[in-house]
Amino acid sequence: MNGVRALVALAAVTVALILQVTLFPHIAWAGVVPNLCLLVVVGSALMRGTQFAMLLGFGAGVLLDLAPPADHLAGRWALALVVVGYVAGRMRPDVRPTATAVVATVAACSFVGTSVFAISGLVLRDTSAGVGELLGVIGIAVLWDVLLTPLVLPLVTTLFQRLEPDRAYAR
């Protein structure tokens, strides 16, 4: 079942990436679009745990780094989504999380992931934006991701739970 799980995870990330780079730029707020790949990684962490989410985060991040219109050094989103997979996997309780806990997890992971991406850009001198501008982008990104949580996370968690119900965490 590991091969099927990997293919389904890749398909989920691919669909999220395609929507993120084709549809959502048309509804961008201050140039910031929702990070659907981040939401897929968080959903996988809630269902499958840290290790799976970190691997998925790396793959999703590499795809996001290379997808047009990539205007940054490759590897920055990969690093950010690996950290997101770790954080989301560690925050996952052993019992069914409440809606508030899921939204808080998404908000924390969006803040951490976008911050890692922004800070890596500052360290690598890959951005012309100042710290103040980056803080505004981080705030908008967190808001976008939290707003899309009720639409995306139930789909992702249900997908992983139905794929291997005996291996998914208690729901």
Rank of each mutant, 00 (worst) to 15 (best):
R76N: 06
V62E: 13
R76L: 12
V83Y: 03
P97H: 05
G136N: 10
G61L: 13
T114L: 08
T158S: 12
T157Q: 15
P154Y: 15
G75E: 04
T127A: 11
C109L: 01
T114E: 14
T157S: 12
V95M: 14
A67I: 09
L153V: 08
A78K: 03
L148R: 13
L73N: 01
R90V: 07
L81C: 04
S128M: 08
V62D: 15
G130C: 09
P165T: 09
P93C: 05
T127Y: 05
R162Y: 15
T100Y: 08
L79P: 08
W77A: 05
E133L: 11
L79Y: 11
R76F: 06
D94Y: 12
G130A: 06
V142E: 07
D126S: 13
V137D: 08
A80N: 10
R90C: 14
L163P: 06
L155K: 12
L81H: 03
V116T: 04
C109N: 00
A129M: 13
V103D: 05
V123P: 02
V142D: 07
V123H: 01
R90Y: 07
G113T: 08
S110N: 03
G139F: 11
D94L: 05
F117N: 11
R90M: 15
L143D: 05
G85K: 01
A141E: 03
S115A: 11
R96Q: 07
A118G: 03
G89T: 01
I140P: 05
R167Q: 15
G61F: 10
T157C: 11
A118D: 03
A99S: 13
A78M: 13
T100D: 08
C109G: 03
L153T: 02
Q161Y: 15
R167D: 14
G139E: 07
A129I: 05
V87D: 00
G121A: 03
Q161F: 12
V84S: 02
G121T: 07
V62I: 14
S115F: 12
L63A: 12
G89L: 01
V152C: 09
P165F: 03
I138G: 01
D126K: 06
P69F: 04
R162G: 12
A118N: 07
W144G: 02
C109T: 02
L159Y: 10
T105K: 02
V123D: 02
L163V: 07
V156E: 14
V123S: 04
S110F: 05
G121N: 06
L81F: 02
G132D: 14
L155P: 02
A108V: 14
T100P: 07
S128K: 09
G139K: 12
A80F: 06
Y86G: 04
D166H: 10
Y86C: 01
V62S: 13
G89K: 00
P69G: 10
L153W: 04
V87R: 00
V137Q: 09
W144Q: 00
V123M: 12
A168K: 04
V156R: 00
P68R: 09
L143K: 02
V87T: 11
G132M: 04
L147C: 09
L122Y: 10
P165I: 15
A67G: 14
G75M: 07
V82P: 03
L148H: 13
G61N: 13
D65A: 05
A78Q: 07
A70V: 08
V123C: 07
T98N: 04
R76V: 13
